[in-house]
């Protein structure tokens, strides 16, 4: 790892100000991706701005229609939150399946979505639930947040405060994890609201995407049978040593049905 200057601001505004003053600053959330990447010298920021001591980034709060989770909330805290578990179990389930217990004790919601790894789990939840990303300067709709592989709508120095998740009538996440890393080879979140059904896929493509054909079919009939015959095209899906595009396309159909079934139960 190359040397860097380490900062530990106590407030969001202090963190954002520090970022502006740095040559090549980088926010440090849980570090479960950034630290390995720095160890491999694939990233060499001049300054690390550690967000761990900013208490306002760790709140979980709820209203009648939504749960808002601070950007520095760990996967373990989301999985263990009684509020999330009772009202948005699909998200608690998703968080409890990320990495391993030790990684979940450090890794954070904000760090994960800012990184936008194509095989990360949260993007499926953000898009399927129609969540809103709240930053230090604005609100970004979930559909507009993930823009390309490892790219997001965040501007230089923009900091994720929290994510606001609307509470669906039903939702569930089904994932086919890589057996070594637990990253999603493919993962599908399905949600049903009074006025809309959403199906969001992670792991299979360069970044999270929705499946309009499945959404339309499920809006008519929210059952696994309704999407029995729907296949997504393999063309643009990821190819690596773990799975071919055709295999990932097949997984998406299977996982979507499993998610619908789980959401109905």
């Amino acid at each position: 790892m190359y040397d860097f200057r380490y900062h530990r601001p106590a407030t969001i505004s202090e963190a954002v100000d520090l970022f502006r003053q740095c040559d090549d600053g980088q926010y440090l959330a849980g570090g479960q991706t950034l630290i390995p990447v720095m160890k491999q010298r694939l990233a060499s920021p001049s300054d690390l701005i550690d967000l761990a001591r900013i208490d306002e980034l760790k709140d979980i709060s709820a209203t009648e229609s939504a749960i808002t989770i601070g950007g520095m909330t760990t996967h373990a805290a989301i999985a263990a939150s009684s509020e999330v578990r009772s009202r948005l179990a699909a998200l608690a389930d998703l968080a409890s399946g990320i990495g391993d217990p030790h990684v979940r004790n450090r890794g954070t919601l904000g760090g994960s979505i800012a990184n936008n790894d194509p095989t990360a789990d949260y993007p499926a939840a953000i898009v399927a639930l129609g969540a809103t990303i709240i930053t230090d300067r604005r609100r970004i709709e979930g559909d507009a947040f993930f823009t390309n592989i490892f790219e997001t709508a965040l501007e230089e120095g923009e900091l994720i405060r929290a994510v606001e998740f609307p509470i669906p009538e039903r939702a569930a996440y089904a994932k086919f994890p890589n057996p070594a890393s637990r990253y999603a080879i493919a993962g599908v979140m399905v949600s049903k609201f009074a006025d809309i059904v959403r199906v969001a896929v992670t792991g299979a493509g360069p970044f999270v995407f929705r499946v309009p054909d499945m959404e339309a079919a499920l809006a008519r009939d929210f059952s696994p049978e309704a999407i029995e015959k729907l296949q997504i095209p393999a063309g643009d899906l990821n190819a690596d040593l773990h799975a071919s595009p055709a295999y990932r396309a097949h997984l998406v159909s299977i996982l979507a049905k499993r998610a619908v079934q789980a959401a109905k139960e």
Partner: peptide
């Protein structure tokens, strides 16, 4: 254990 939680100490900085 860091503050009671199991953590991979190869993926945490001493300053943290």
């Amino acid at each position: 254990h860091v503050n009671g939680e199991a953590v991979k100490s190869c993926t945490m900085l001493a300053v943290q």
